[in-house]
């Protein structure tokens, strides 16, 4: 395929993905808006006012970056895993397989679709947070790049999950039993400085801690972790997941007999 044709094919997948999550907005865009508003009200306003400061900031200010990041993570992952598994389930993945689109374009199309939803929901949550706190961006480049990288990483994760999934149960196992606990324990609601030393060490093994804290650094300028290390780790994990996804596509795992 010529470069222009590749671009059209890529854009077709992206538009299809965006059209999908926009069409079912009561399932994709509304729930995170409601859930995060409840978090802001309950944890930020009601409980937060009694907690006082965290890391030198109001509790509400402290949790907003974590909650935005939580939305980005769950929505970028959820978009790709449900969309690609649905495509497999309805067998319309065959539309892609019979076409001349290279596998890397298919992968990039789905990932950008996931990033679009993750970032879109992140923006909605950010706008909602403005009703509860003033949001200052301390470091714009760090803020934008960590959001994009996190969305890419979890979109790739969702893609791999969808390839391996054989039932709708299989696409909810990872978000329920892995992503949600890691997100809650990833410093969304607290600084790991509050934990005993042993648990601080354990927390450092949680990759989501690095994403949440790097984003918090971008917004507030405070972090529990080394930002350069976080970026390097994210880049490395993205490279590994991208290569593995391509390998699975090439092999036809779960999509070709």
């Amino acid at each position: 395929m010529k470069p222009r044709e590749l671009l059209i094919a890529f854009w077709t997948i992206v538009v299809k993905e965006i059209r999908r999550f926009m069409r079912i907005w009561p399932q994709t865009l509304l729930p995170p808006a409601i859930t995060m508003t409840l978090y802001f009200i309950i944890f930020g306003n009601l409980i937060g006012s009694r907690i006082g400061e965290m890391g030198g900031f109001d509790y509400m200010e402290y949790i907003v970056p974590g909650l935005i990041m939580m939305s980005v993570i769950t929505n970028s992952y959820g978009n790709v895993v449900s969309s690609f598994y649905g495509t497999k389930f309805q067998r319309n993945v065959e539309e892609l397989l019979v076409s001349p689109i290279p596998n890397w374009i298919i992968l990039c199309g789905y990932v950008v679709g996931g990033v679009a939803r993750g970032v879109g929901v992140g923006l909605i949550v950010t706008l909602l947070s403005l009703f509860f706190t003033d949001l200052q961006v301390h470091h714009l480049f760090v803020t934008i790049s960590i959001v994009l990288m996190t969305a890419v990483l979890f979109s790739l994760g969702g893609f791999i999950n969808a390839i391996y999934a054989n039932s709708f149960d299989d696409i909810s196992i990872v978000p329920t039993f892995i992503l949600t606990p890691l997100t809650y324990l990833g410093g969304v609601f607290y600084s790991i400085q509050l934990l005993p030393e042993f648990w601080q060490g354990v927390s450092m093994l949680n990759p989501i801690l690095y994403m949440v804290n790097t984003f918090r650094y971008g917004i507030l300028g405070v972090s529990d972790i080394n930002i350069v290390f976080a970026f390097s780790m994210l880049l490395a994990v993205i490279a590994v997941l991208f290569s593995y996804s391509l390998y699975l596509l090439q092999k036809g795992k779960g999509i070709r007999s």
Binding site: I8, A9, W11, S99
Partner: peptide
């Protein structure tokens, strides 16, 4: 039209 897009048709 989506299928056409997969073949690089504008």
């Amino acid at each position: 039209t989506t299928q056409a897009g997969y073949y690089g048709i504008g």
